[in-house]
């Protein structure tokens, strides 16, 4: 899957998890930019992404994520492998 295909699906997951219908994701977005994105919702988000894209992340992969852009690249890598 390419970045352009990932982003609309990823946006949908973000909107659902954070209950914000108008939320638009950006590459440089961090947890600080999204109200409600804390350590509790972080893993809920990760699990929802895994379900949506049919991939599995390791703890180590999740721990190094800093921005939404990192997340997009990780999904890209996972869906290609």
């Amino acid at each position: 899957m390419q970045s352009a295909d990932i982003k609309p699906n990823l946006s949908a997951v973000f909107r659902q998890v954070f209950s914000q219908p108008s939320l638009d994701i950006q590459d440089d977005m961090t947890a600080a930019d999204v109200p409600g994105w804390d350590s509790l919702t972080h893993v809920t988000l990760v699990f929802a992404i895994e379900q949506r894209f049919g991939v599995k992340f390791s703890t180590r992969e999740v721990m190094v994520l800093k921005t939404v852009g990192d997340l997009v690249r990780l999904i890209e890598r996972k869906t290609q492998s």
Binding site: S39, L40, V43, T44, T59
Partner: peptide, 15 residues
């Protein structure tokens, strides 16, 4: 604790 206890544990139990 959130980063080194809660998150890894929550990841392991996410399902």
């Amino acid at each position: 604790l959130a980063d080194y206890v809660f998150l890894p544990l929550r990841m392991a139990l996410r399902s």
